[in-house]
């Protein structure tokens, strides 16, 4: 089990966002987390690398229990792709991808650079190595962000609404890269509203509402035969 969450609670002031969430992700599995806004999906995924500190419950990543002390060790094994990309604007695409290997994994530059170029080529941006983020489209930025995540050689990648900040016509290029990653066996936890992606790529869809997981299952049954009225209502809404 690569991710194991038990009875996770998190509140922001008076607002209880997570009310006891359990989640398991196996190696090589692609888990898509769906649910209406405010259901706690983003908070949940941000608890997995301690960008949010849970109030109660446990998170285990690759066997390590996640605490403030173990955060760095856990973050070395995970990577995150953000809704707003969060590329480093003062660095070129290549430098963005090399930063983790140089700063954290202590890879020598002579090795990090060709690897970074290869990763950028893999996300279809071989010709954009020397571009600063400001010169890239949203879809290109997000692909650089995915290359940057891959450069950490993570055991699991956390995607927090990776296409939500993009113009509709740019979704496809990002989803295509994610689809390939899934096919290559990368373990992925993806918070998204992309039902088509979930249907096609996910091994399991987890549906959250009101701070708990209320339904989960393989996309075949999740989409065709939803077991919960809230899921049915949500899917109707998304489809329309």
């Amino acid at each position: 089990m690569i991710v194991s969450v038990r009875d996770l609670h998190k509140r922001f002031g008076d607002l209880e966002v997570l009310k006891g969430v359990d989640l398991d992700v196996e190696r090589g599995e692609v888990v898509v987390v769906m649910g209406p806004s405010g259901s706690g999906k983003t908070t949940l995924i941000r608890c997995l690398n301690l960008l949010e500190v849970p109030d109660a419950g446990t998170v285990r990543i690759c066997g390590h229990e996640l605490t403030k002390r173990s955060a760095r060790e856990v973050r070395r094994r995970t990577a995150m792709v953000f809704q707003q990309f969060n590329l480093f604007p003062h660095m070129t695409a290549l430098q963005n991808v090399m930063e983790g290997p140089l700063s954290v994994r202590r890879v020598p530059r002579a090795q990090a650079e060709p690897q970074a170029r290869e990763l950028l080529a893999r996300v279809g941006l071989a010709d954009k190595c020397d571009c600063y983020p400001a010169k890239l489209s949203g879809g290109q930025k997000q692909r650089v962000a995915i290359a940057r995540a891959l450069a950490m050689k993570p055991e699991v990648i956390l995607f927090d609404e990776p296409t939500s900040a993009l113009d509709p016509e740019l979704h496809a290029e990002v989803l295509q890269v994610m689809r390939e990653l899934a096919r290559e066996g990368m373990t992925m936890v993806v918070v998204t509203h992309e039902t088509a992606f979930a249907r096609e790529v996910a091994d399991r869809v987890v549906f959250m509402d009101g701070g708990t997981v209320i339904s989960q299952g393989p996309p075949s049954s999740f989409f065709t035969d939803p077991d919960h009225p809230r899921v049915r209502a949500f899917l109707r809404l998304v489809a329309s």
């Binding site: 690398n49 960008l51 760095r72 060790e73 973050r75 070395r76 995970t78 990577a79 995150m80 953000f82 707003q84 969060n86 590329l87 480093f88 930063e99 983790g100 700063s103 954290v104 940057r148 950490m152 956390l158």
Partner: peptide, 23 residues
């Protein structure tokens, strides 16, 4: 500096001083 910059650095396990200096 956008909070997302700190988060991106934290998510890749970059130490505090290095985050300050590099990012």
């Amino acid at each position: 500096v956008d909070k997302g910059q700190w988060e991106a650095a934290a998510s890749m396990a970059m130490p505090y001083w290095r985050t300050l200096r590099r990012i």
